[in-house]
C-alpha cells in the first residue's frame, strides 16, 4: 500500500511511453521485418528493469491476446551489443494465437511484458572444440546468436551448420549464413529442404556420418521441434563428443480421464498426487494441505490461486483450461494434466 499505487504510476508513465513501468519488465516493439515465409524478426526496446541476454538464450514474452494474457517463449537472435535491445524471430503457426498476434497485430510502439532471459545451451566463442549445429525449422534461432557471436570472434572453432526446412522460402537468414560461409573458411552451412521439388533427406545417423567424418571430435548442438531433436539425438549422440539439445513442444494435448496427476505446490515445494475427478480443494485438503477457502461452490473467489502451468477442468461447465498461467478456483476445478500451483 502506498499513497499512489504502482499500477497508478505505471498508468501515467505509460501515457508517455508504453514500456515505462515501476514494477514490470516491459519492452516496446521498435521494428518488424520478414525474414522467411510466415516468419518475422521483431526488435524490442526493453525498459530499465531488463537485465540483458546472452547468445543462445530465450525470453518469455507475455501479451494480451483477445483480452487474455498469453505467454510464449522465443529465442533471441541478436548479440547483446546493441544496448539492451534484442531481436526475436517468430514463425506464424496456423492456430498460434501468440504467433499470429506478434507477426500481424502488435503495432510498432506497443509494449509487451518480458521475463528474464534464460537458457544454458551455449559454447564460449574461444573454445576451440569443433562444433556441429543441427537446426530444425525455426530451431535455427538460438543457434543463430551463437553463430553470430563466433563470427565476431572469427570462428576460433571449426563450425558446421546443418539446417533443415521444408522449402527454400522457409529458410531464415540464408543469405547471411551463405555470406559467412564465403567469409570464414572455418564455417560451413548446408541446407536440407525436405519438401522441395527434389526432396532432400531428413536427419539420420548415416547422413551425419557421411557429411562429417570427424563427428567423434565434435560438440553437437541441436535445436528444433520435439521430433527433430529426438531424431537428432538418435543420429548423433552415440558418435559425437558431446550432445546438447533444446526443443520446443506445442502445448500438451488434453489428457485422459481418470487416474492421478501430480500437483506441484510451488511455494511450499511439495509434489502431491491427486485424482483427476476430484476438486483440487478437496483433493489437496485430503492430503493435509491447509488452504484458504470459502463457499466451496465457486462463488466467493476465496480459494482462487494462480496456476503456473498445466490444465484444469471447471467442474461446473466441464470446460478445460488452455494451460496458460491463469487464476483457478480450487473448489470447482479438477486437474486434467500435471499442474503447478502458486501455493
Amino acid at each position: 500500500m502506498a499513497i499512489i499505487s504502482a499500477d497508478a504510476l505505471d498508468f501515467w508513465l505509460q501515457q508517455l511511453n508504453p514500456a515505462l513501468s515501476v514494477s514490470r519488465t516491459l519492452a516496446r516493439l521498435v521494428a518488424r521485418s520478414a525474414v522467411a515465409h510466415d516468419t518475422v524478426q521483431l526488435t524490442f526496446a526493453p525498459n530499465r528493469a531488463f537485465r540483458g541476454t546472452r547468445p543462445g538464450q530465450h525470453i518469455n514474452l507475455t501479451a494480451e491476446v483477445d483480452g487474455r494474457r498469453v505467454t510464449r517463449c522465443y529465442s533471441v537472435t541478436s548479440l547483446p551489443q546493441r544496448g539492451r535491445r534484442f531481436d526475436l524471430v517468430v514463425k506464424r503457426l496456423t492456430h498460434g494465437r501468440m504467433s499470429s498476434f506478434l507477426t500481424q497485430r502488435l503495432r510498432i510502439g506497443e509494449a509487451v511484458e518480458i521475463g528474464a532471459a534464460f537458457g544454458e545451451m551455449h559454447a564460449a566463442p574461444a573454445d576451440p572444440t569443433p562444433r556441429l549445429l543441427l537446426a530444425g525449422g525455426v530451431g535455427i534461432t538460438p543457434l543463430l546468436a551463437q553463430i553470430r557471436e563466433s563470427a565476431v570472434a572469427g570462428f576460433a572453432a571449426p563450425t558446421a551448420l546443418l539446417y533443415w526446412a521444408k522449402r527454400r522460402a522457409d529458410l531464415c537468414f540464408a543469405a547471411e549464413l551463405e555470406a559467412l560461409q564465403r567469409q570464414f573458411p572455418n564455417f560451413s552451412v548446408r541446407f536440407f529442404l525436405t519438401q522441395a521439388e527434389q526432396p532432400q533427406p531428413r536427419i539420420s545417423e548415416s547422413l551425419l556420418l557421411a557429411q562429417l567424418p570427424d563427428l567423434a571430435s565434435r560438440s553437437v548442438f541441436a535445436c528444433g521441434p520435439g521430433g527433430f531433436v529426438r531424431e537428432a539425438g538418435m543420429a548423433a549422440q552415440s558418435h559425437a563428443l558431446r550432445f546438447q539439445s533444446e526443443s520446443f513442444e506445442p502445448l500438451r494435448a488434453a489428457a485422459a480421464e481418470g487416474g492421478e496427476v501430480v500437483v506441484r505446490l510451488a511455494r511450499r515445494g511439495l509434489d502431491i498426487s491427486v485424482p483427476r475427478g476430484r476438486t483440487l480443494l478437496e483433493a489437496l485438503e485430503g492430503q493435509g494441505v491447509a488452504l484458504r477457502s470459502g463457499c466451496r461452490m465457486g462463488i466467493c473467489n476465496t480459494c482462487a490461486c494462480s496456476s503456473l502451468g498445466g490444465r484444469t477442468r471447471d467442474l461446473r461447465s466441464q470446460a478445460i483450461s488452455s494451460g496458460e498461467p491463469a487464476s483457478v478456483r480450487l473448489c470447482v476445478s479438477a486437474a486434467v494434466t500435471d499442474l503447478t500451483l502458486d501455493l
Binding site: R68, R69, C300, A304, C305
Partner: peptide, 28 residues
C-alpha cells in the same frame, strides 16, 4: 474475480486493493 480470466495481475481479484478506508481482504 470478474476479470481473473484476463490473467492481468493488476486486475486480479485476490490481490486488488481499493481506494477506500476498508481493506480489500476484509471486503473479500
Amino acid at each position: 474475480g470478474q476479470y481473473d480470466w484476463m490473467g492481468d495481475p493488476a486486475l486480479r481479484g485476490q490481490s486488488y486493493e481499493w481506494d477506500i478506508a476498508g481493506t480489500s481482504d476484509n471486503w473479500r
